[in-house]
Design a protein around this nucleic acid. Sequence first.
DNA 1: CCTTAGACCTGGAGGC
DNA 2: TGCCTCCAGGTCTAAG
Length: 279
Amino acid sequence: MPEAPEVQNVISSLEKELQGRKILHASITHPKLSDNIPYEEMQSKLEGQTFRRFLRHGKYLIFEMDDYDWICHLRMEGKFLVLDTFPEDPKISKHIHARFDLDDGRMLCYYDTRKFGRMHLYEKSEDKHNHKCLKDIGLDVLDPKADGEYLLEKLKKRKIPIKSALLDQSVIAGIGNIYADEILFQAGLDPRSVSSHLDLEDCTRIMNAARDIIQASIQEGGTTIRSFSYGHGQSGNFQNELQVHARDDSPCPKCSGPIEKIKVGQRSTYLCPNCQVLK
DNA sequence: CCTTAGACCTGGAGGC
DNA sequence: TGCCTCCAGGTCTAAG
């Protein structure tokens, strides 16, 4: 579900709710949620820890606690809810796979219908890239160092379609299926273009488009197509700004021609074949 | 090393 | 109503 703009809104919202709060009791009911250590160990280590800093890298949420870095990935459907009471409705509570009781009487609940989300807990480190789950992740899409030259270097030996490269988190971190389509439309490149065929100018247009679109979407609260929400059930608004993604019934905003829906690397992909050049 | 198909999960939508 | 198939803001893995 969430890409960089949605994750940024989630982490900003949680910072307001949780800064300085202490976890009194932790209960994880879906063992696979804890990815790098046994879930019982994650529970006991988090008890007594206070939320100190709130960071994002790509699609990862990073909670810096007193002694640990707690790194979470929501994958497709994961959500954090800050609640006063545990939901009574079993249709809701059956999807809550972890609960963290706080020192102000509230609780942080992790809700995930598809159970794809994962959590990692590491000894605290100044450089978060030391942690195994972030080791092979590329620069964040909003990192000033993530420019055209950086992308060109990452693509030079890759034969995969450019869209697949933008989805590869070891190339750039934070872009997912919606924003990849939007970025390539704005950059005027066909998503099936061979990555290594792009030149510096193409790569610069991609990175400029990526920054523009990701920053604009953060301002709009992210994109809500099916289920994304954060904070107290707020939805995003950027779905109203999408130019091509999921708009195969609408004309291209530039040339008024038909928007096509195709598959690239197994993922649904939307493009204007007239405005986007195949390289 | 690189690339691709399949796996992991559940629920909603649409066809018959 | 029921059943079936397809689809979904993601990423691991196994195998070629």
